[in-house]
Design a protein around this nucleic acid. Structure first.
Length: 909
DNA sequence: TCGTCTCACACATTTGAAGAGC
DNA sequence: AGCTCTTCAAATGTGTGAGACG
């Protein structure tokens, strides 16, 4: 669902949505996880057409405004972080451990939400474990395809999410750039930060109303192919049930292994292949040892004897359990408890404390056990490469959240800008545009300014405040209130733990006062963006395509055809009178029209899409796009997942020394009422890291405003003064693209034009060096699966039929079994760029009373299919020259254990 | 030579199909 | 016939260590 809009590339193109299905014991039936791009398109429908009935649930003060997320196993994460968390990445994919387990609260029980996990680079550095610490040894490698893991339960009601702990343990990490499984691709020896995004998906009409992104600094990790730090190994073995065998008592412990090796060697020498000595013998031989280690002995015995599993478990598990037993078990968290190594040395105490805290977590939103947390990562402050200080804030308990609340209400002041911490270019919102943009890249502004080897790269702690709560604030007028002076570097330090925790986790309305001036008005409950810097963007940065296609037609060329990107198509906003066109409207433009202040008014086509989705790396300066007057956005990248479009703004410049970004276009940006605060960088939808990567000082990176034309996408650059006048880079980490979120409120970066500290010294610009971009092969598109998925979400809708490419047949709506939707015409030049999806109100799930009274929320099926239909691959509408950009990527990978999306926005490698 | 990655290995856990029993 | 429960094999997850690679 998310994919399409957020990441256009995801859009369902040739890929199959089948991948979108998930299996869950609770919900055995396959359920489409993602709404088709059509859904997103629905957003583009003029408010009049799509405007949902007055939503009572979403009214200010509703739970959604107080969405909070707690890291359930924070104590365990802290333990790892203290030592410097390492995550194994393999070609075949490796799960994360500790697993990301969170608890959500503040959701509207009756609304549907989608949970996403993405992992973004913390900085643009490469690390090496030297001298028993992680040190920066160079610049990061070219960005890999951005992929998002969608929680298998998605979409599910708020009640569903809140009634259980949410684990992303099924997400897999891989270092295989050609991975066809859809796993999250990461570079080895790079530092990453997982992010969890909660996106409201109440219905098509309301889709994208709110988005919340959370990052927990303690979950940062460095990817490795083999563990470097013995402490981490020990922690993993002691904490991970699968590694029991390697525990002292386990069959795979050193003693046992050595013994086996000895036997092997001896047996080999003797050349007496005693079969018995193999497995059985091992156990027998080990018996003596097993005496010392009862569990192992038992296990051995069990293996020899026809014992049932139960019997086996009793003995074997005993040891581990004991260790675990020491840890406070919380009901429902048994697993968690097991994760905590009982044998942990000094850490144990903290762990126990943390556990206690965890148990204490409540609606107050306090982060459990976060306080006092210190990571072992290299400290930025540390001058030399010695230890990279962990950027994590000491008081990590606060989770950072970026929440974007769409106020579908027209009343929302566009101008409202939420000041985001300077450091957090992460989230830039579009002022006028209702849809907030998540800047994935920005989220992790890495202070890469420091040269390799230099002191720890400034992974700006502020960027990743521990558990700080980032939220995309609803567009409020409050922006004015937002102080431009807001600490640009709200590093963790900047945020006193106490404040965070004291407020409860998250969003303390009171705190919000400072930042959110005015927010309260629209959403009193909406937390102010305390840590704007965070990358809270749900969607990973999109990689810029390297293929600037001069030939690419200007955005205008794509008009009406329903370009996925509103920006491109000024006319894209359908008028109520023109239903047909409506569908084509940009998925996100949520309510551009709705917002009176928003620059994006129908009258001003160009302004309609403040953020042209552009791949930073791509087509900079493509003349074709010049049509849009040199708009403020140098480059933006948008990728959509399930209809969420991500827009990335590309900073024109990066300060060589400071690493701060300046956007040439900013001049333009400043126009308009929206910008109450000049100079302040608005979190423009996203200026993702990707940009940053590419933003190396230089022509490319600093494309003149006019250069915008080179958007890989049909993303037309808004002509004239852009509503979003100041696009600030969200994040330093430019690496990530920020997904645009509908209705996203503008986030004003607290720091003025220049981006604070974060420098991106090493960010390889893909654009600059296409060659560096790993060629990524994408698995064959399985349209069938994808389509099926989509079909479920998209019941046949009359409107859908409007689009030629949306065969009504494709709608398998109620069908549980995924049905295949008509294949997407990939790269179908003929295909209009119109978003095919249109939802018929009657088809909407009865989740929200306001929408449908048929079913009480309580009765709501947690895994209902969405009544959305995907009719067409947005890419099809792309001008041929541009299509290659998407040709591969966007895939939805269905796994029994979860779904992955490629953030296809990136260029094809 | 060194750093990094890949692979096979053994063990532990999870998953899901098949069968039995009611 | 349908349902629940148990059993069990296969799949999956895990760290290790040897070897390959650049």
């Amino acid at each position: 669902m998310l994919g399409v809009e957020m990441y256009p590339s995801l859009a369902l193109g040739p890929q199959r949505l089948s991948d979108c299905y998930y299996r869950d014991r609770e919900a055995p039936a396959h359920v489409p996880l993602y709404p088709s791009s059509c859904e997103m398109a629905a957003r583009g429908i003029p408010p009049r057409l799509l405007q949902p009935p007055p939503a009572t649930a979403d009214t200010p003060g509703t739970p959604q405004d107080n969405v909070r997320m707690e890291l359930e196993n924070a104590s365990l994460w802290k333990q790892f972080s203290t030592a410097g968390t390492e995550m194994i990445v393999t070609k075949k994919g490796r799960r994360m451990f500790p697993q990301l387990r969170v608890k959500l609260s503040g959701l509207n029980p009756s609304l549907r939400y989608i949970l996403l996990l993405d992992i973004v680079p913390v900085d643009s550095s490469r690390y090496r474990f030297q001298d028993n610490s992680w040190q920066v040894v160079g610049g990061a490698e070219a960005r890999l395809p951005d992929r998002v893991f969608i929680h298998p339960d998605s979409p599910a009601t708020g009640e569903h999410w809140q009634n259980r702990s949410i684990s992303f343990h099924r997400a897999k990490l891989t270092n295989n750039t050609l991975d066809a499984q859809g796993y999250i691709i990461l570079h080895s020896l790079h530092r990453y930060q997982p992010r969890v995004h909660v996106i409201e998906a109440r219905d098509v009409l309301m889709w994208g109303r709110a988005q919340h992104s959370f990052t927990f600094p303690e979950t940062q990790f460095i990817t490795v192919t083999a563990y470097q730090n013995s402490k981490i190994t020990e922690l993993k073995i002691n904490s991970n049930p699968f590694a029991k065998g390697f525990r002292e008592n386990g069959m795979n412990c050193k003693k046992q292994r050595e013994a086996r090796l000895k036997r092997k060697t001896t047996s080999n020498q003797e050349e007496s292949l005693d079969i018995e000595s193999c497995d059985p013998c091992d156990s027998t031989e080990l018996l003596p040892q097993s005496v010392e280690i009862p569990s192992s002995a038992l296990s051995i015995i069990n293996t020899t004897l026809p014992m049932t599993d139960s019997g086996f478990h009793t003995e074997v598990t005993s040891l581990p359990d004991q260790t675990v037993s020491d840890q406070p078990l919380v009901l429902g968290q048994a697993f968690l408890a097991s994760e905590i190594p009982s044998t942990m040395e000094s850490q144990q105490q903290t762990t126990s404390d943390n556990n206690v805290n965890n148990t204490l977590m409540d609606g107050s939103g306090q982060m459990m056990g976060l306080s006092g947390y210190t990571s072992s990562f290299p400290n930025p402050q540390l001058s030399s490469s010695s230890h990279a200080p962990v950027p994590l804030p000491q008081s990590s308990s606060i989770y950072s959240v970026v929440s974007s609340t769409q106020n579908s209400d027209l009343e929302l002041p566009q101008s409202s800008v939420i000041s985001s911490p300077p450091s957090m270019p992460t989230y830039s919102s579009m002022p006028s545009s209702d849809y907030p943009v998540l800047n994935a890249s920005t989220a992790m502004p890495s202070s890469t300014t420091s040269p390799p080897g230099s002191s720890y790269p400034p992974i700006s702690p502020h960027l990743l405040p521990s558990s700080s709560y980032h939220s995309l604030l609803p567009t409020d007028q409050s922006q004015d209130n937002l102080s431009p002076h807001t600490p640009t570097n709200p590093p963790f330090q900047s945020i006193p733990p106490s404040s965070c925790q004291g407020s409860g986790l998250t969003i303390d309305p009171g705190q919000s006062q400072v930042d959110d001036g005015g927010l309260s008005s629209s959403n009193a409950t909406t937390p102010a963006v305390q840590n704007p810097a965070h990358t809270a963007f749900p969607f990973p940065p999109v990689q810029p395509s390297n293929d600037p296609d001069p030939t690419s037609p200007p955005c205008q060329s794509l008009p009406q055809s329903g370009l996925p990107f509103p920006q491109c198509h000024p006319n894209s906003i359908p008028t109520p009178t023109d239903p047909n066109t409506t569908p084509t409207s940009f998925p996100f433009p949520p309510s551009a029209q709705s917002t009176p202040n928003s620059i994006m008014t129908p009258s001003n086509p160009n302004t309609l899409f403040p953020f042209p989705p552009v791949h930073p790396g791509h087509n900079l300066g493509t003349p074709g796009h010049t049509q849009t007057p040199a708009t403020s956005f140098p480059v933006s990248q948008s990728s959509s997942i399930l209809g969420l479009s991500t827009v990335q703004a590309i900073p024109n410049q990066v300060h060589p020394t400071t690493g701060s970004f300046s956007f040439p276009s900013t001049n333009v940006i400043h126009q308009g009422p929206v910008q109450s605060v000049p100079n302040t960088a608005y979190a423009v939808p996203s200026f993702p890291a990707s940009l940053s990567k590419h933003t190396i000082p230089g022509p490319l990176q600093n494309p003149a405003p006019t250069s915008h034309t080179s958007y890989p996408f049909p993303t037309p650059i808004p002509s004239g003064p852009h509503p979003l006048q100041s696009l600030t880079l969200a994040s330093s980490s430019s690496i990530h693209s920020v997904p645009a979120i509908p209705n996203a409120t503008q986030i004003q970066s607290t720091f003025p034009q220049s981006y604070p500290n974060p420098s991106f010294p090493h960010i390889p610009t893909q654009a600059a060096n296409p060659s560096q971009i790993p060629s990524q092969s994408f698995p064959p598109i399985q349209t069938s699966s994808t389509s099926q998925l989509l079909s479920q979400f998209n019941p046949p809708v009359p409107q859908a039929s409007t689009h030629p490419q949306c065969p009504s047949s494709s709608n398998a709506y109620p069908a549980v079994a995924p049905t295949e939707i008509g294949s997407f015409s990939q790269l179908n030049s003929a295909a209009p760029y119109l978003p095919d999806m249109v939802l018929h109100p009657s088809l909407l799930p009865s989740l929200d009373p306001s929408l449908s009274s048929s079913a009480p929320p309580s009765l709501y099926n947690p895994f209902p299919s969405y009544s959305l239909r995907l009719c067409q691959d947005p890419r099809s509408s792309l001008h041929l020259p541009l299509r290659h950009i998407y040709r591969q990527p966007q895939h939805a990978h269905a796994h029994g254990q979860g779904s992955y999306f490629d953030l296809g926005g990136r260029a094809v490698f």
